[in-house]
Design a protein around this nucleic acid. Structure first.
Length: 905
RNA sequence: GGACCCUUAGCUCAGUUGGUUAGAGCGUUUCCUUGACAUGGAAAAGGUCGCUGGUUCGAGUCCAGUAGGGUCCACCA
């Protein structure tokens, strides 16, 4: 067995074990006989993305869950993969091409796609490599990509089925248009941002009454050439006489009607509204109600077209805005302008203001809406934290049809073919339903020469919403069998961010309900049972991490500095449930330090002698000598069993940071700070040595198992170095449960008050140290004198060697009485420093007085409580008894402190 | 406008169904290389739990209101 070095060096260990794990195919998810399935699908990162801190948190948590499931003996499967990320990827490639002064249209669709595939080959899947560095135990043989042929088939199959259901239709409607990417966007891809602009007051002159004006406020004067009417509220007396009349449109001068519409807010501005149906959603509706024409003055790229008129045509919309204001001013139509803040919709990806634009698009009426609500309301799918279900339900209750077509090339091309010669701008519903004119299928028309395929591709989310289905082989029967769809679906847990509840989570639920196991109960069709929402990682100032701010550390740098385990433990330990996370590097350092602590505790064990072949669970249990257990032995095992069940409870509630804290506290405080220290005495005595080593082995072995999901590399290394795998197994081939076997081995319950007894010993030691520190003797070996009752002294005597060692005493002696020495009152008696002569009596008196005062204060409070008949009358007996006991203890301690003070000269 | 979350030690956060003297990590101060670990050990200082009421024998915890911070949804030109 190799010797454990002085400190843990992660680099080589991580490399070695990741290779070993994959060589053994340790992460392969297989149907296990009689085993419970446990499946997670990774939220697929963008194929050309790189690892961020958000990924680290998210994937560390998934890995923890999957590894724990394996240790629990489940058939665990974690499916990895990447998303083609339509707009994001296409934009990146286009930007690259632009460097060479090439536009995608210069290349044409096919050659452009070749470029994207080349890019994907070059830059793709880096993130999957990075996940391996983190230790992610994905089943890599099952890696999927949303543009793979099989996956694409699933996407198109879903489209065709939904089309045949009547859930998909083509319609000319107002969409969110991104002038930068030049595609439609779904509502979810639009982000409202406050913008500082100007509110222009524009005068429209009555055609029938020259010199009389209607004033309108607008933030977008460049759209005035697209005005087709003014609208006022039907009951607004100020404008009653204008309704039905016409006014002059001040740019591209033409008469336009004044209409009455209840959509107008009388309170806002002048109470009159300009109607520009081509460039505003509300206006479009108004226009429709009044049969008004639509004048679109913008090009797809956001520049003004010839309909905007000379002077504006050709300008970008923002330049056009300024120019329009100028033109209005020259024409005397500008009554004023003021600074104004309003909300403007921005394209999530391109970060430019979107334009409402009237275009032909493909829309999806969401399937299985009611069931999607019911799944979460009824608890078939549980959200953690639960409150996100409210957000989810609110969205479902206000849902709008989903614009699923994108005017991009990188994506799944919509499986619709139009008969050649058909005017797509004028297709009616009847045409769409006519297979002679429009063909919809996976295979395409049998006579392709007569047809033209739809140019648009599908929204990326219209492929990733099938992720849990398609990664398990849907819809092909053979593929589903191969992937064990039947065994692993529904998956167990989804770990993701709340920012994609609408984009992804809700849509996956609907897709699952619609496509999985038709006809079967809801519980069998949902894609997952638990959804754990992580917090969003922010920097120390609370800002979102972003490339442009440069406040996002590179996880790989952190791995280099602190090890993958340190990074994982650090980040998970600060991830409270449902709260955003402020990233602090010192927590990562803490993770690393813990790994080193673990390393050294194991090193200490190794230095105490090899366990040899006696290191399996059964062998260790066999080496225990329960008849020799003292309170420390009992207590550490009782705490280990408690930890085990506490962790199970933390896991069941997805309280990861809580689990970290329990592991940390047990291992560092209970085991290292106390048990290992008392071991140093036990190991010296032949009578206690073997049992102590067995207990250390049991604790270390179990601690490694419990810690392994969090810090897989260092635990695997130590597992091997300490020889806990006599058959050469890797740690995940071993099993977590131990408590039942331990109980069976003991054949009796743990000693009831052992934990309390140890607490008293700890207080004795701690107070002795404090007393020494108080008198500047912390590093000196001193003689301690104990006065007090017999049971206390018996406990001291029974643990004499340990206590002397931990308190730093050369000896601890019983005395009937000690006069004038500095002292503290401990649960095991009053402890005196044997130093009477050297002590400053006045200072010591002052110290005691302070302590007495504090205690007296508490006694008064307790007495008051017990003296209150309302309390004694109404509080539960246990609480009253507790208070009485407390009072008695406090009073006894007070008396002792008073005595000590009086004894000082 | 609607919904949700947060406010506890210098900092970041725990505090389960109300019940002893409110905890942890980091930071700070002092001391210590004692047979694993200075990536360590010991001790200490530090909080009237945002504010105001209420319920209760008892409130950090429950209720109402209020201030500040944040997130999401909707959006008036």
């Amino acid at each position: 067995m190799a010797e454990i070095t002085k400190s843990y060096e992660p680099r080589d260990v991580e490399k070695k074990w990741y290779a070993a794990w994959t060589d053994r195919r340790a992460f392969a998810g297989r149907r296990g006989d009689g085993k419970e399935p446990y499946a997670i699908v990774i939220p697929p990162p963008n194929v050309t993305g790189v690892l961020t801190m958000g990924h680290v948190l998210n994937n560390a948590l998934q890995d923890i869950l999957v590894r724990r499931a394996r240790l629990e003996g489940k058939s665990a499967l974690w499916i990895p993969g990447t998303d083609h990320a339509g707009i994001a990827t296409q934009t990146v490639v286009e930007r690259e091409l632009r460097k060479a002064k090439v536009h995608r249209r210069d290349l044409g669709r096919e050659r452009f796609l070749e470029k994207v595939w080349a890019w994907r080959k070059e830059k793709g899947d880096i993130i999957l490599e990075q996940l391996r560095r983190l230790g992610a135990s994905c089943d890599w043989d099952r890696t999927h990509f949303t543009m793979d042929p099989e996956y694409s088939r699933a996407v198109l199959k879903a489209f065709v089925e939904l089309f045949r259901d009547g859930h998909i239709y083509r319609g000319k409607r107002m969409v969110n248009w991104c002038p930068a990417s030049q595609t439609a966007l779904s509502d979810e891809e639009v982000i409202m941002k406050p913008a500082n602009g100007l509110l222009y007051k524009v005068r429209y002159e009555r055609t029938d009454r020259p010199g009389v004006f209607l004033e309108v406020a607008t933030t977008r004067p460049e759209t005035i050439p697209g005005d087709v009417a003014l609208a006022v509220h039907p009951e607004d007396p100020r404008y009653a006489d204008a309704i039905g009349k016409t006014v002059w449109r001040p740019l591209n001068r033409a008469p336009i009607p004044v209409v009455a519409d209840a959509a107008v807010d009388r309170e806002f501005g002048s109470g009159a509204l300009k109607i520009t149906p081509a460039h505003d959603k509300v206006d479009f509706e108004v226009g429709r109600r009044h049969n008004l024409p639509v004048i679109d003055v913008l090009n797809a790229d956001g520049t003004l077209n010839e309909l905007a008129g000379p002077g504006l045509a050709g300008l970008d919309r923002f330049a056009g805005r300024k120019k329009a204001a100028e033109l209005l001013r020259e024409a005397g139509a500008l009554a004023g302008e003021e600074a104004y803040q309003n909300n403007v919709g921005y394209s999530e990806r391109a970060d430019v203001p979107i334009e409402p634009r009237l275009t032909w698009q493909w829309w999806l009426k969401y399937p299985c809406l009611d069931e999607a609500k019911q799944a979460v309301e009824g608890g078939a799918i549980k959200f953690y934290p639960e409150r996100w279900s409210k957000v989810y339900l609110h969205w479902l209750n206000n849902i709008q049809d989903w614009c699923i077509s994108r005017q991009l090339w990188w994506g799944h091309r919509i499986p619709v073919w139009y008969r050649k010669g058909l005017d797509r701008e004028r297709l009616t519903e009847a045409d769409l339903a006519d297979p002679a004119k429009v063909h919809v299928s996976l295979e395409g028309p049998p006579d392709p020469a007569n047809w033209e395929q739809e140019d648009d591709v599908l929204d990326t989310w219209a492929s990733s919403w099938l992720w849990p289905l398609a990664t398990l082989g849907w819809p092909e029967k053979a593929a589903m069998e191969k992937a064990d769809f039947d065994f692993f679906y529904p998956t167990t847990t989804l770990v993701t961010g709340p920012d994609i509840i609408f984009f992804w989570v809700a849509r996956m639920i609907m897709a699952g309900l619609r496509f999985a196991r038709p006809g079967e109960p809801l519980e069998r069709r949902i894609p997952f049972r638990h959804v754990y929402f992580t917090g969003i990682i922010r920097d120390a100032q609370g800002r979102k991490m972003s490339k442009s701010l440069g406040n996002s550390p590179d996880p790989l740098d952190l791995i280099a500095k602190y090890g993958a385990d340190g990074l994982r433990l650090g980040i998970v330990s600060i991830a409270p449930q449902g709260q955003d996370i402020r990233f602090q590097e010192d927590r990562i350092e803490g993770g690393k330090n813990f790994c080193n602590k673990l390393w050294n505790a194991c090193r200490f064990r190794q230095m105490s002698g090899p366990a040899g072949d006696n290191s399996s669970l059964a062998a260790i249990l066999g080496r225990l000598e329960p008849e020799k257990f003292d309170d420390d032995d009992e207590a550490i095992l009782a705490k280990l069993v408690q930890l085990d069940s506490d962790l199970a409870s933390s896991f069941s509630r997805f309280e990861f940071s809580d689990a970290c804290q329990r592991l940390y506290g047990f291992f560092w405080n209970d085991f290292c700070d106390w048990y290992v220290e008392v071991s140093k005495s036990k190991l010296q005595a032949e009578g206690t040595r073997a049992n102590c080593l067995a207990i250390q082995d049991l604790v270390l072995r179990q601690a490694l198992l419990l810690l392994h999901p969090f810090i897989p590399f260092v635990t695997e290394e130590l597992w091997q170095l300490l020889g806990y795998a006599p058959g050469g197994e890797i740690i995940e081939e071993c099993r977590l449960p131990f408590a039942a076997e331990l109980r069976a081995r003991l054949g009796r319950p743990f000693k009831a008050d052992a934990v309390e007894a140890v607490l008293r010993l700890q207080q004795f030691v701690s107070q002795a140290r404090a007393l020494k520190a108080e008198h500047n003797l912390a590093s000196k070996r001193v003689r301690l004198l104990v006065t007090g009752d017999e049971p206390g002294w018996a406990a001291v005597q029974a643990n004499l060697a340990k206590l002397a060692r931990l308190a730093g005493a050369e000896e601890i002696l019983r005395r009937d009485q000690v006069e004038g020495a500095p002292a503290v009152v401990t649960p095991l008696g009053t402890l005196h420093l044997d130093l009477a002569s050297a002590v400053d009596a006045a200072a010591e008196k002052q110290r005691l007085a302070k302590e007495i005062e504090k205690l007296a204060h508490h006694i008064a409070a307790t007495e008051a409580r017990l003296g209150n008949p309302a309390f004694t009358g109404k509080a539960p007996p246990a609480v009253i008894a507790g208070a009485r006991q407390q009072l008695a203890e406090q009073q006894a301690k007070l008396a002792e402190l008073e005595r000590l003070r009086a004894a000082l000269k």
